[in-house]
Design a protein around this nucleic acid. Structure first.
Lengths: 153, 153
DNA sequence: TATTGTTATACTCTATAACTATA
DNA sequence: TATAGTTATAGAGTATAACAATA
């Protein structure tokens, strides 16, 4: 049985092209990170912790748009790799913070260089004007929809 | 211990903004599809089959950038939902094709409308000129890197 | 009671590889 | 031997909910 009602192709949507490009940018980065035994979500957590002395798991969950349960698992893996430590809150017995180890802090700039490399591979051949136009376009959507989480996948 | 080496923020990368927007476009669509008990990957398979009488699992794997094993599982779910059927190849005993059921074929235009809706929600407020400029930008990347698979997540 | 974090369960997608049947 | 498809296993991410400890 064949299509009676012809539909607009998937490729008619801007979302299609954006997902195609975005997925490849992410996967390209994921492959580079995998050589260092790090996932994209792990990278984002490490990068967040790099700018702070320490962060509560619940703060990370908010920033990264993940559940607290997911943060626990992610932190467990990074702790197993000796890149992160858990520190009990001195006053509030329920609370903790996560912080980079010396080794974790040393790794982040290396990974940041991979991120720079990957972005340049996909967007570096455009002119600064073109890149800035796209960035404005994307930020307009971010503002309009109030998107705030750091994308992790 | 605090950062000695200040790094460019995550937000300095165009890939960051694209992933943020793309993820929300996808998740927005995923939520709409979920009301019909369909995932994005399932939608893509259904949409592929809508344009053909039938397709071999291996062809679908190529088009969707998924492994044959993943296609098997995806097809199993769609068969369980009575949206797709497996048909043995008449001559080659190894080969099969997948095709939409009547019910599956009836569902696709409904889902396509959701896709249209979702794309409009995120990109509809731009002018046709702006949209076309972004599309060109994205397609230039697709061409340059030879991206061909249909993005599924 | 509310909050913090952990744990358990389940589902989707991914990747690899072993496996069956057929060519 | 090679190919088509299935199956098994494991890992990463997501979501929900139950849970313990503390406030």
């Amino acid at each position: 049985m064949r299509s009676n009602q012809p539909l607009s192709p998937l490729t008619a949507h801007l979302g299609y092209w954006m997902r195609l490009v975005s997925n490849h940018v992410s996967h390209g980065f994921a492959r580079k990170l995998a050589e260092r035994d790090v996932t994209v979500a792990e990278w984002v957590m490490l990068r967040q912790l790099y700018d702070e002395d320490a962060l509560a798991p619940s703060r990370l969950a908010e920033r990264m748009g993940m559940t607290r349960g997911a943060i626990t698992k992610l932190a467990d893996r990074l702790i197993a790799k000796a890149l992160v430590v858990r520190i009990d809150h001195p006053d509030d017995g329920r609370a903790q913070t996560l912080a980079l180890t010396k080794q974790g802090r040393r790794l982040v700039p290396t990974l940041a260089a991979l991120a720079d490399e990957n972005d340049a591979a996909f967007f570096g051949h455009f002119t600064p004007e073109e890149r800035s136009r796209i960035e404005q376009f994307l930020k307009a959507i971010v503002d309009r929809h109030g998107l705030t989480d750091v994308p992790v996948s």
